[in-house]
């Protein structure tokens, strides 16, 4: 089975903020591989500076990588321009974090939902209006929401509009960058349920970027954990949460506050600060904070290596980038 999305060796750097003759660069992504099957949800977790949002922007064609490839359904999208890029964009749509900032405050909800239909000239104006009403219904809003402005909606309703706008062009993949982070828990649950239902009914795949492991655990079929521009561990959802291998993944899981009475914080799972991606540590980027580090960690760049028994076809093998927990196999 070929993947819907196949990211290989993606490298992105930006000029660091500030000025000067020899400006340093932010190393946002340093060689990232990721694949996503049709109709699946790949969860991408990480803290500040992990590069997860940059990866999402590369997949959306909003950020040109320095190196590497992004293959969507057999087509290389890095370097695409003009009509070829527009054709791909019909099929990969974004849902953003801030539901207010992602809707033009001057536009009605209907116009925002219609935006991609207008761009691609789908059907007659009357067809588009009808489609807008269908889409609003699909995300649980009423047709009269089409004439309102974003400020007149609640946060959850705005995010429903954002999802309807993303669905308008009939995408195969939705890249959702922190889609529920700005919402209250009870509203968050409604949006997560909506996304799950859309996936069941429409077969749309999600690249789901979030800092919230609980949310990622709930929605994902596969999960990748990022740290400072690299993926440190990738696995099926169940494998990753039941049997985390990388020391960073383990610390991250330990740090997540779980709303259960026995989940007291007994020790600090990880000391130290997240280093700056402007001048990332040598070797394994996690080594300065790692409880298991050995001398070689500051020199050698770990690569993602399969762990445990090889999985049956269709499964993402559990892979980890840490030679310490994973003695090199012959």
């Amino acid at each position: 089975m070929t993947a819907l999305l196949d990211v290989r060796g993606l490298v992105v750097t930006f000029p660091a903020p500030g000025s000067g003759l020899r400006r340093k660069r932010v190393h946002a992504l340093s060689g990232v591989d990721l694949s996503l099957q049709r109709g699946h949800t790949h969860g991408l977790v990480g803290e500040s500076g992990s590069g997860k949002s940059t990866l999402a922007r590369c997949v959306l064609g909003l950020q040109r990588p320095d190196d590497g490839s992004v293959v969507f359904d057999g087509t290389e999208i890095v370097g695409l321009r003009g009509s070829a890029l527009r054709d791909i964009r019909r099929r990969i749509q974004p849902v953003f974090q801030d539901p207010l900032g992602s809707l033009d405050p001057r536009w009605t909800v209907g116009r925002s939902v219609r935006e991609s239909l207008d761009a691609f000239g789908v059907g007659s104006p009357a067809d588009r209006e009808r489609r807008v009403r269908e889409l609003l219904d699909l995300v649980g809003l009423s047709p009269d929401h089409a004439d309102r402005h974003p400020v007149q909606l609640s946060g959850g309703q705005r995010q429903r509009v954002g999802i309807a706008a993303a669905l308008a062009s009939g995408p195969d993949l939705i890249v959702a960058d922190e889609p529920v982070s700005a919402l209250d828990v009870s509203v968050q649950a409604q949006i997560l349920n909506l996304m799950a239902r859309l996936q069941r009914d429409l077969g749309v795949a999600f690249l789901f970027v979030s800092h919230d492991l609980s949310v990622v655990e709930h929605v994902s079929s596969e999960v990748s954990v990022m740290y400072l521009g690299k993926i440190v561990e990738t696995a099926d959802r169940a494998d990753l949460f039941a049997d985390p291998v990388h020391p960073y993944t383990r610390a991250l899981l330990d740090a997540v506050p779980i709303p259960e009475p026995d989940a007291r914080l007994v020790h600090v799972p990880l000391s130290g600060d997240i280093p700056s991606p402007i001048d990332p540590p040598s070797g394994c980027r996690f080594h300065p904070r790692c409880p298991l580090r050995v001398d070689s960690c500051s020199r050698e760049h770990p690569v993602l290596t399969p762990v445990g028994t090889l999985d049956s076809a269709g499964h993402t093998p559990h892979r980890v980038a840490c030679p310490v927990v994973l003695p090199a196999r012959p």
Partner: peptide
Amino acid sequence: GFVEGGRARG
């Protein structure tokens, strides 16, 4: 977001 969104919408 809506500016990036506009580009992503085609």
